[in-house]
Design a protein around this nucleic acid. Structure first.
Lengths: 185, 185
DNA sequence: AAAAATATGTAGACCGATCTATTAAGGAGC
DNA sequence: GCTCCTTAATAGATCGGTCTACATATTTTT
């Protein structure tokens, strides 16, 4: 793949990621992707011959990896688990507010849209959540109930992010931050 | 409004609720609503002259009230707060599994789809979450941090429900149930 | 090194299907 | 007779996807 082609592919993926995160799978039209990325229709189907599902699938896995990496960085640079979770909430809150309440969890909307049927996109979302759970689980190594705690913390984060996006306010994130310590005690 | 008309209106709302909860706002086509409800196109626009937004808005408020009432019932019949939350998780888990992993939170998908813009539907979702928070808050009366706790518990519930739907499994709900006590201690 | 051949990527017109919404006409029940 | 409600045809826009022609690199051949 040449230089130009790779760049176009990435521009298309970035545009898709934006649109999907803002409005979900069904609302992200390929015409919008084309317009936002500047790539013509033919290029889209050259780089993603299987169409919309492939495009959104790759876009979701990419976004999942980006967030996962951020989690790992924050896990390393935090002294305690509580600090780590608070850093995650702050990071996601910044991202959400700076995007004008558009960018919450890049996976959640598609996950909810697709869960009704067991298709590749549903699996992709499930996989992303599993990978994030593993990052949390690793940071909890040694604790009893580490598996349960990892899920509970991820649920708390996802729930707070959902409420914050729904209310268009950081308040839920801030309030939850104060309760993390209780969960970890 | 006559008997027949009221029935049609309710059939339309029920069908909309089902479809919206399963796949979100954008994926719920009016053609599907018509097919599922048995009502013809004209009836839909007779009962909901403002179109899809009005239809989905009413449908969401209705679903929000139904879940809110269930919360209140469970709050009354539970001896402790922990029991109450566990009963809620069980109730929502049953609903989710019995529906073939389609019916999670009836508001979440639309909330995530719409949060990017501040429109009436976004407001409707926000209002539903506010009303649920109030129910939880009332059950926590007397506790310090009652406001924070109410949000944290709702976040935990919503997050667990999201993960359960995404994974098509009760496991996240079950694991979170075991951690509720820690949060409430 | 020049030219021909092949691979890679771009460009946009076009297709049938489906979308939300409107309209005009007729039937049902008080 | 009059309101309430249903019926179905239709409009215009947009959907995801296909197709052919063209441009630009890259490699092969001479």
């Amino acid at each position: 793949m040449g230089q130009k082609g790779t760049e176009t592919r990435i521009r298309i993926l970035n545009a898709t990621q934006e649109l999907v995160e803002t409005g979900g799978y069904a609302s992200a039209g390929l015409n919008q992707v084309i317009a936002a990325s500047g790539a013509p229709r033919g290029s889209l189907y050259f780089h993603f011959p299987e169409g919309k599902d492939q495009l959104v699938g790759e876009s979701i896995r990419r976004a999942g990896q980006a967030i996962g990496s951020a989690f790992e960085d924050l896990a390393e640079s935090s002294a305690s688990v509580a600090e780590f979770v608070e850093a995650v909430l702050r990071h996601l809150g910044d991202r959400l507010e700076e995007s004008g309440w558009r960018k919450g969890c890049p996976v959640a909307t598609v996950a909810l849209e697709m869960a009704g049927a067991s298709n590749p996109l549903q699996q992709a979302c499930s996989d992303v959540y599993t990978s994030w759970t593993a990052v949390l689980r690793a940071r909890l190594e040694g604790r009893q109930d580490a598996d349960d705690l990892a899920i509970a913390i991820l649920a708390l984060i996802e729930g707070a992010l959902l409420l914050a996006k729904a209310h268009r306010s950081r308040e839920p994130l801030d309030r939850v931050t104060g309760q993390v310590a209780a969960l970890l005690r």
